[in-house]
Design a protein around this nucleic acid. Sequence first.
RNA 1: GGCCGGAUGGCAGAGUGGUCAUGCAGCGGACUGCAACUCCGUGAACGCCGGUUCGAUUCCGACUCCGGCCUCCA
Length: 460
Amino acid sequence: MLKIYNTLSGKKEIFKPVEEGKVGMYVCGNTVYDYCHIGHARAMISFDVISRFIRHLGYELNYVRNITDVDDKIIKRAEENNESTQALTERMIAAQREDELRLGNKMPDREPKATEFMQEIIDMIQVLIDKGFAYHGASGDVYYRTEAFKEYGKLNNRKLEDMLAGARIDVEVAKEHPADFVLWKQAKEGEVSWPSPWGIGRPGWHIECSAMSTNCLGSHFDIHGGGPDLKFPHHENEIAQSEAATGKDYVNYWVHCGAVRVNNEKMSKSLGNFFTVRDVLAKYNPEVVRYLMVSSQYRSAIDYSDQSLNEAKVALERLYTALRGQAASAEYVPTEFTERFETAMKDDFNTAVAVSVLFELVRELNKAKTDNVAQAELLAAELLALADLLGLLKQDPEYFLQNSTVSEGLDEAGIQALIDERTQARKDKNFARSDEIRDELADQGIELLDSREGTSWTRR
RNA sequence: GGCCGGAUGGCAGAGUGGUCAUGCAGCGGACUGCAACUCCGUGAACGCCGGUUCGAUUCCGACUCCGGCCUCCA
């Protein structure tokens, strides 16, 4: 029995799909005007893990994640770069895909772009106007009439009256109510635009997700996810648009991941305190980043720092060390570890506990190595299978241990030459020279491990 | 000001009304030429004040502090 925390109710709820055996999940993707930062990575990885586990439970999942490729920031950035919006968005989409694959994500089943759903967007706006939920304002823009949707604010426990009182934003005169938001925006001279019944323009930010999600998954579907900063206003507005347009319940489970913080502040574009995925991957093996994300429960805030990355690296090394030189059987019978792992994951995708089970499995595996080779191989297979649900332990152990960080120091040949020299020194019982070489390598972050089979090394 | 979330051992991070999280670090031991890896053992925690209870870190209330959202942001 799967339980999911639903932002709408503020509680964990037993998951029951709209249609038996099938799950529709829509996740808000990125606005593609810049490279992904670590906060984006957290969201993408969280929902990737969620999608894997939902499939693991046997559901037929349809995972849709949009791409916002028309927006003010895109237009602005393209102007600054002196390129077309299309050239910019295509570049960023390719970069995002590359980052994501390096981080070990499986791609969503479908990635609709806003620009490909212009007719559906226009149709939905027209329905909203026809039903009295939208109006063509004096400015020429089309606005959503929040006062017409009586449940406005239900996702965030907000009341329209309170928002009026606390409104600090410049109230556009064209709006009937300060909380009203744009559905269709008039184009300025030279801006990318589409024809519509309300003149040449482009969609507001929120309407695209209502149009794409309902067109891809139907007007009522199971899970809608996104980052923590999307709860308001984006998701609130989506609910208002979709439920007003279709007259049906929109989404059953609203799922939001936690923020990534830097120095106790949220990492965000507007604060400028973000690290891009590619910056981080220039220093660390991508699986270290993934481990960091998965080692906390998806809803809790994560602190990002060199220290947290290093701790993630060391922990992941312990897992990989257990697999170094260890054969895994082709098949295995799930043990209590699998059961505990699955129980944790069924409890609102508690990856933190799931990961702890991996460590306990590794302890058993390490013990079995010396006295029960067959059991060790079974446990190794089980470890790999469970880790796969988190997208971890996908690399060759030897490769990972030698490349957990990206180093500009000695290359492999240089390291091997020193190891060979040391091996000879040890044969000659010249331990002074042997230790000297070991210290020399240690200074370069290379740690040696002697065993019967020879000496292997790990990048620290 | 409104709404939401959090406060756990040296650090990170789960969880529970009454025996274990887990990882790193520490301490003792085994293994090793010495190490490392690994294994065994071990110390260490639940912001503050009340309440409920035989018993609360866990439930309830107040307080303090921290973070998020309320404007674009995963």
